[in-house]
Simulated scan of single mutants.
Amino acid sequence: MKAVLYQVDAFADLVFEGNPAAIVPLSAWPSDDVMQAVAAENNLAETAFFAPEGEGYRLRWFTPAVEVDLCGHATLASAHVLFAHLEYAKPEIHFETRSGTLVVTREGDRLSMNFPAARPKPYPAPEAIAEALGGKARVWLKTSNLMAVFDTAEEVVDLTPDFPALGRLLTPLNAGLIATAPGSGGIDFVSRFFAPSHGIDEDPVTGSAHCTSVPYWARKLGKADLVARQVSKRGGTLWCTDAGERVILRGRCADYMKAEISF
Rank of each mutant, 00 (worst) to 15 (best):
2 K>Q: 15
7 Q>P: 02
9 D>I: 04
10 A>V: 00
11 F>N: 00
11 F>T: 02
13 D>N: 08
14 L>K: 14
18 G>F: 00
20 P>D: 01
23 I>Q: 01
28 A>L: 05
31 S>P: 09
31 S>H: 07
37 A>F: 03
39 A>M: 10
39 A>L: 08
42 N>A: 11
44 L>P: 08
46 E>N: 11
48 A>V: 02
49 F>G: 08
52 P>R: 14
54 G>L: 11
54 G>A: 11
55 E>M: 03
56 G>V: 06
57 Y>L: 10
57 Y>E: 09
60 R>V: 01
61 W>R: 12
61 W>V: 03
68 V>K: 11
69 D>N: 15
70 L>I: 05
72 G>P: 01
75 T>H: 03
75 T>G: 01
80 H>A: 14
80 H>I: 03
82 L>M: 13
82 L>G: 05
82 L>F: 09
86 L>Y: 10
86 L>P: 03
90 K>L: 12
92 E>I: 05
95 F>Q: 02
95 F>G: 00
95 F>N: 00
99 S>A: 15
100 G>N: 10
100 G>T: 11
101 T>C: 12
103 V>Y: 01
103 V>L: 03
103 V>D: 01
103 V>F: 02
104 V>P: 00
105 T>A: 06
110 R>E: 13
110 R>K: 13
110 R>A: 12
112 S>G: 02
121 K>R: 14
122 P>S: 07
128 A>L: 13
132 A>D: 00
133 L>H: 01
135 G>C: 11
135 G>E: 04
137 A>C: 10
146 L>V: 13
146 L>D: 05
149 V>T: 08
150 F>V: 02
151 D>P: 04
155 E>R: 11
156 V>K: 00
159 L>N: 07
159 L>S: 11
161 P>I: 10
162 D>L: 06
165 A>V: 03
173 L>P: 06
179 A>P: 02
180 T>E: 06
193 F>R: 02
193 F>I: 07
194 F>W: 11
197 S>R: 05
203 D>R: 06
204 P>I: 01
205 V>T: 11
207 G>F: 00
210 H>I: 06
210 H>G: 07
212 T>N: 08
214 V>F: 12
215 P>D: 05
216 Y>I: 07
218 A>Q: 06
221 L>T: 07
222 G>Q: 09
224 A>W: 01
225 D>L: 09
226 L>N: 00
227 V>W: 03
229 R>E: 14
231 V>I: 15
232 S>V: 10
235 G>Y: 10
236 G>Y: 01
237 T>A: 02
238 L>T: 05
243 A>V: 04
245 E>N: 14
246 R>P: 02
247 V>C: 05
247 V>G: 01
247 V>R: 00
248 I>A: 04
249 L>I: 15
252 R>Q: 14
252 R>T: 14
257 M>G: 06
258 K>E: 15
259 A>L: 12
259 A>K: 11
261 I>F: 10
262 S>N: 12
262 S>K: 09
263 F>A: 15
